[in-house]
């Protein structure tokens, strides 16, 4: 996977900027794809790097969304501050939850994260005063980004604002993956028994990864709430948790550019299919997912790496 990992970020960024000029009427869609990418990247730090699965990652996404929405209702309308607050609150929540999530094996982790997800969903549903319950929160207005760039109707500010966050997160995770800590996470995924023998505190590493991952998921949620001016229960629901797992897997879990492609690919597909057939779009998604498992071994990134290797061998 190494070949794809190095240097795929710049072409992706150029593609995104080209999209701004080529398809100016689709800026809102692009923005949502960037946000999905941030969310998928946050999740893949767990699944792809540390090998820790979760079916409740939307809890942090939703927490980030509500955090900035609630703060905006109370007067903190500057988006970047809202993002930072969402990052901190979601990361703290992840840190608190890490004790019950990180222990055990994959199966228990799936059940525990699923359970936490349902609990948080119900809690948010009950706390109507804070979250607006089933109606969600929409009675807030975000101020201009950094006091300079107002969110416009065409979505240009939202586009660049989300893209900037995606680029920062991408770069951060890319550096993190190559750091000794990132290597240790991959070591934990591959041979957790071996790690203590080289002096690596497995639990502490996993707790750190979980906290970072939760914080970034919160960023993504806050971005969505700010750019859509809405925070709702589905943002921390099970479907969103399952979706992020699909995106990471489709893109190629463990590969940062792959996960971005997976998130944008699945996000776009969902949008296109639901426009084509509002009734049966899930059928299309289901078929694509199943095909991807059989055809794309290791997701988009895995298939790309295999293709590059084959071309090189032939050359």
């Amino acid at each position: 996977m190494r070949m794809v990992r190095v240097g795929a970020g710049l072409p992706l960024l150029l593609l995104a900027v080209a999209g701004f000029f080529l398809f100016p009427e689709y800026l809102t869609l692009f923005t949502s794809l960037f946000i999905l990418s941030v969310f998928a990247l946050s999740y893949d730090l767990l699944q792809g790097h540390a090998g820790v699965v979760s079916l409740g990652h939307a809890v942090f996404f939703g927490t980030g969304a509500y955090t900035t929405a609630i703060l905006a209702r109370h007067g903190l309308a500057e988006p970047v501050l809202g993002l930072l607050a969402a990052l901190v609150v979601s990361a703290l929540l992840a840190l608190v939850l890490t004790r019950i999530v990180v222990v055990g094996n994959d199966l228990t982790r799936l059940l525990v994260t699923l359970g936490v997800g349902f609990l948080m969903f119900e809690a948010a549903n009950q706390a109507r005063d804070l979250t607006g319950g089933a109606d969600g929160l929409s009675d807030f207005t975000m101020g201009p980004v950094l006091g300079l760039f107002r969110f416009d109707f065409a979505g240009e500010t939202a586009f660049f604002y989300s893209l900037a966050v995606l680029v920062l997160v991408y770069f951060f995770l890319w550096r993190l993956a190559a750091s000794p800590f990132g290597l240790a996470l991959r070591g934990i995924r591959e041979n957790v028994r071996r790690m203590p023998a080289i002096g690596a505190p497995v639990r502490r590493h996993l707790a750190t990864a979980y906290t970072i991952s939760g914080g970034i998921a919160g960023l993504a949620g806050a971005l969505l709430a700010q750019t859509s001016n809405f925070a709702s229960l589905d943002m921390l629901g099970f479907e969103r948790s399952a979706e992020v797992m699909m995106m990471a897997t489709l893109g190629g879990t463990g590969s940062i550019p792959g996960v971005v492609l997976g998130a944008t690919g699945l996000g776009y597909l969902k949008d296109a299919l639901s426009a084509m057939s509002p009734k049966y779009w899930q059928l299309g998604i289901g078929i694509v997912l199943m095909l991807s498992v059989f055809v794309l071994r290791g997701g988009i990134a895995g298939a790309a790496t295999a293709l590059i290797r084959r071309l090189r061998e032939r050359a």
Partner: peptide
């Protein structure tokens, strides 16, 4: 117990 998907160098650095 070499980590299979880490390179030789990464296998060394992870323990550094």
């Amino acid at each position: 117990d070499i980590f299979p998907s880490l390179t030789v160098e990464e296998n060394l650095l992870v323990a550094g």
